[in-house]
Write a protein that binds this DNA or RNA. Structure first.
Lengths: 246, 246
DNA sequence: TATGGTTGTCTATATCAATAGACATTTAGG
DNA sequence: CCTAAATGTCTATTGATATAGACAACCATA
């Protein structure tokens, strides 16, 4: 396998302590320290990355701020949290079912809703005239009280008027559709990209600046192939992975 | 739609000039400046991001180093390159066909090959006994002479002995399989994650440190469902997107 | 209770990142 | 040919980043 012996880079706009924090976070998620439940000692990490111990301490302080580790004088730096949710992407992708039993509590919050005219791009995706009214929902999904996705999603307004209330009450797109008479829908395309999180997503997803988010742009249709929903969802990349099963 | 009016963050381990460089690179890829073929003037970008003009200049210098823009005194900062390749992920995913006519020249380079015993994880994925021999290929794929993916891929050694030569000559997994008697294969699962690029990938993919890579872990089987290949491929996130069509 | 291993804190120094302002240089266009 | 608009260069200052070394405080355990 891979040794992962990639060194850290200087003077490139990303502080050493942040690079090291990202590497340690990934190692924790990867289970590298499962044997002890602890991160290696600071002096050891400093040697591994070829930096001063103080630099490692800055990285660990950042991880402690995220609630991932907790340092205890005399004992070491204990791992507090370690998770990576898996989201299957299939023809029948649904958020709640996708998480399955990976989390006990699941909730969907409606942050904001608005009616607006469809942009040219959106209209083309939803197969409606440009400028036709659409309902936009800004939603936040949580699993076990931790935010796992921040979505912006659009529906044709003439067909799904009132979906903001249906979602607000149910916390589920699937249920909201059902309340409006659509019993089934299918995922026809998903585009996946990755970028740095921007300000709003940082706050909503409770990320530390510089964090990476996975972005999924999804189109759902009814069983007749008529587009019913277009959604752009952002996920913290260190907590989430997508699985595409064919 | 979104205004994109997310501001830039200070004192979080990622230098302002790098955040701004990433934002401008994304705007270029997004076609925001297609009307003029130029990036907005430095003073204008400085106002947009709320920073000093010198900070913007650092960002533009980094983009010029990547060959994305070129500044000309008196004229402005011209866009040199702008691309985002799309990779469809389907049951019959193939690298070369996936790029299609998005690039004129495509090539696949074999960087390294080795025979080794399968780890427990790999053996489980390939449905072979742990420790059974596998052939590992380290490959680099290019489109129009620019690197677009860095892959590590494993094959059961008893069935595909000599595939390193077949790949080396053909530069194509599909052709190499065919040379060894396998005429067709299917993609059964793809896992997509994103991280910061590590040292080796930075070099091979010619990225600037701090860059984001998309990671796809893929399992291919023959038409009978027997695993034939497991691959971990890394793509520059600002050049590539995946599309899943169901 | 003594000891080794670990984290916590302090001081000092050098370099990078960012701001601020001034002015030179080049290009495009009236 | 002049002017406006844009990039190029220089100096100076401040705060963040990183290194270096020393020592204190704490924990587990022999």
């Amino acid at each position: 396998m891979d040794t992962g012996q990639a060194n850290v880079h200087r003077q490139n706009g990303v502080a050493l302590w942040r690079q090291i924090a990202d590497r340690i976070r990934a190692s924790i998620a990867n289970g590298d320290y499962d044997a002890t439940g602890k991160v290696p000692p600071e002096f050891s990490l400093a040697a591994q990355f070829g930096v001063n111990r103080h630099t490692v301490r800055s990285a660990l302080a950042a991880l402690a701020q995220e609630g991932i580790v907790r340092s205890v004088q005399g004992r070491g730096t204990l791992i507090e949290r370690k998770e990576r949710l898996n989201f299957p992407i299939t023809r029948r992708t649904r958020f709640s079912e996708g998480i399955g039993d990976q989390a006990r509590e699941k909730e969907g919050l409606l942050l904001h809703s608005a009616q607006e005219p469809a942009s040219a791009d959106l209209a083309a995706r939803l197969h409606i005239p440009a400028g036709a009214p659409v309902i936009r929902l800004e939603t936040l999904r949580k699993a076990d009280r931790r935010p796992v996705s921040r979505s912006t999603t659009w529906f044709p307004a003439d067909r799904f008027g009132g979906i903001e209330d249906a979602y607000s009450k149910s916390g589920s797109i699937t249920v909201a559709f059902r309340m409006l008479g659509l019993s089934d829908y299918l995922r026809v395309s998903t585009e996946v990209t990755a970028t740095h999180a921007d300000g709003a997503d940082l706050a909503d997803l409770q990320l530390s600046p510089g964090a990476i988010i996975l972005v999924a742009r999804a189109l759902n249709t009814d069983p007749d192939g008529v587009p019913v929903q277009y959604a752009v969802s952002r996920f913290p990349a260190d907590m989430v992975q997508f699985t595409i099963e064919n």
